[in-house]
Simulated assay, not measured.
Amino acid sequence: MMIRVAARLKGEVKADTLESFRRAGGIAYEELHHAEALRRRLAAEGAHPWRVEPGVSGQLLCAWNAFVLQAIGEHLLDADYAADPRTPGYVPPVTHTQVAACFDPVEHWTSLARQAACDDGFEFDASLRLPVDLPEWVETDPCPFPYLRGLQAATRTVRGYAEVALGELEAAVRDEDPAVRDDLRVLRRLAAKAATAADYAEGLLGDAPQDGPHEEIEQRLQRSLETYHHLGQLVAMPALISAYETGELDLAAVGEEGPAVSAFDPWFLTSPRDREHWKADPRARRAIEELWAGDPEPRIIRDIQRQIDAARRAGAVSHARGADGELLGGFHVCPWAAVYEVHREIDVHGRRLRPGQQFTVDVYLNRGTFVRKILVGTFTATTRVDYAKER
């Protein structure tokens, strides 16, 4: 009774269904064990990873995906339980939603791994784009501290397995094929990108109290997990590497445009549709001046907008429209940043954005810390207005 009362007061929900899926999903670790044994056998036989049967690489890839999803879900649950022993079996709604999204595909990938193991000619559905992404991250503000610890633990686990798998792949290749060398360079760059994000998050988190820069940590841990997830799939199926796209746009190739470094325009994030309206509002002028006065590194936000501008010129994003076809304009909070729709997968400020998503740039002060965030969601027209610079 006391546990239920404590959980209700904290706004937590029961995790009994998640625990059932955790138990069932334990078979993902069996498939990972089989995949590791397969990789060792291939190495002993001198098999070239780029030339194995489709069923072999398919088994390795599917087992990897099942493992990563199961590991993330379990670490999120365990971190929440450890943070508050008073409410075992209960978790915040954001944790419940994220864990469910991770556990749900585990059965599918485990089934595919087993199918591939008994079919040398195994093929994926032609509509499946590999490597696949992780499930959508649940948006939450503020992010619960135990949730960060769970992401941290999951990143450590996934990183360890990914780095071992990459090392084994490199050790298995002994030829001088230029294409193979190019592929390995792609994998090493991905590993470096994932490791840097993880290490930076570790440095920000450390043994910090619960009032640390949660959003910055969360974004880096998510980015690291996403990259390791892709890395493991590419290691399992090297044939995917040559066609792999990270989604990062080459700003130099499309031309860098944006606010001049010497003349900072406080309205550069603001939706072009509404910019003149806000410029004519004295309260809005004061709010935006106070907001940017709190930004210790304006270069960062300019770079974010340059990425978006480059993506627009490349046709990867456009200004978002509502269900009625009308432009949505800007987010309702100062600096009333434009809302965009994604047409081609890209990375903006370390956040992977997928076709069909809508996003905006959210900036504000949080207890003296300047926050820059890519906010993904479903945006609709509203009459709400928020002039606050601090949240």
Results as ranks from 00 to 15, higher is better:
residue 1 M to A: 13
residue 7 A to I: 09
residue 7 A to T: 05
residue 7 A to W: 02
residue 12 E to T: 07
residue 12 E to I: 01
residue 13 V to W: 03
residue 18 L to N: 01
residue 20 S to A: 14
residue 24 A to Y: 09
residue 33 H to A: 14
residue 35 A to S: 14
residue 35 A to G: 05
residue 37 A to P: 01
residue 41 R to I: 10
residue 42 L to N: 14
residue 43 A to Q: 14
residue 43 A to D: 06
residue 43 A to K: 13
residue 46 G to M: 04
residue 48 H to R: 11
residue 52 V to S: 07
residue 55 G to F: 04
residue 59 Q to C: 12
residue 59 Q to T: 07
residue 63 A to F: 03
residue 67 F to T: 06
residue 68 V to A: 15
residue 71 A to I: 09
residue 76 L to I: 10
residue 78 D to T: 07
residue 79 A to L: 07
residue 79 A to C: 05
residue 79 A to H: 05
residue 81 Y to Q: 07
residue 86 R to P: 00
residue 89 G to I: 09
residue 92 P to N: 11
residue 94 V to F: 03
residue 98 Q to W: 04
residue 99 V to T: 02
residue 103 F to W: 10
residue 105 P to A: 04
residue 105 P to E: 08
residue 107 E to T: 08
residue 108 H to R: 14
residue 112 L to W: 06
residue 114 R to H: 08
residue 116 A to V: 09
residue 116 A to W: 03
residue 118 C to P: 01
residue 123 E to D: 15
residue 124 F to M: 12
residue 125 D to M: 06
residue 127 S to Y: 08
residue 127 S to K: 15
residue 128 L to E: 15
residue 132 V to T: 15
residue 133 D to S: 11
residue 135 P to E: 13
residue 136 E to V: 04
residue 136 E to T: 11
residue 138 V to I: 14
residue 152 Q to N: 09
residue 152 Q to Y: 14
residue 157 T to Y: 11
residue 163 E to A: 03
residue 169 L to D: 00
residue 170 E to Q: 15
residue 181 R to P: 00
residue 184 L to K: 08
residue 186 V to P: 03
residue 190 L to D: 00
residue 191 A to T: 00
residue 192 A to V: 06
residue 193 K to S: 08
residue 195 A to C: 08
residue 200 Y to P: 00
residue 201 A to N: 07
residue 205 L to Q: 02
residue 208 A to I: 00
residue 208 A to G: 03
residue 208 A to H: 04
residue 208 A to S: 12
residue 212 G to P: 00
residue 215 E to M: 07
residue 215 E to A: 11
residue 218 E to I: 03
residue 221 L to A: 06
residue 223 R to L: 05
residue 224 S to G: 10
residue 229 H to E: 06
residue 230 H to T: 09
residue 231 L to D: 12
residue 231 L to Y: 10
residue 238 P to F: 04
residue 242 S to P: 02
residue 247 G to A: 06
residue 247 G to R: 12
residue 248 E to M: 04
residue 251 L to F: 02
residue 264 F to L: 14
residue 264 F to Q: 09
residue 264 F to D: 08
residue 266 P to K: 12
residue 266 P to L: 14
residue 267 W to C: 07
residue 269 L to P: 12
residue 272 P to V: 12
residue 272 P to L: 13
residue 273 R to T: 10
residue 277 H to M: 11
residue 277 H to A: 15
residue 278 W to E: 10
residue 279 K to T: 05
residue 280 A to Y: 04
residue 282 P to Y: 06
residue 283 R to M: 08
residue 288 I to K: 00
residue 290 E to Q: 13
residue 294 G to M: 12
residue 314 A to S: 15
residue 314 A to I: 04
residue 315 G to P: 03
residue 317 V to D: 09
residue 319 H to C: 05
residue 320 A to C: 12
residue 322 G to I: 15
residue 323 A to Y: 00
residue 324 D to K: 11
residue 329 G to R: 07
residue 329 G to K: 05
residue 334 C to W: 01
residue 337 A to G: 14
residue 338 A to F: 02
residue 340 Y to A: 03
residue 344 R to L: 03
residue 345 E to I: 01
residue 358 Q to D: 09
residue 360 T to R: 07
residue 360 T to N: 09
residue 364 Y to K: 15
residue 365 L to K: 03
residue 368 G to N: 06
residue 369 T to H: 03
residue 369 T to C: 00
residue 371 V to A: 01
residue 376 V to L: 10
residue 376 V to W: 15
residue 377 G to K: 09
residue 387 Y to T: 06
residue 390 E to M: 01
residue 391 R to F: 13
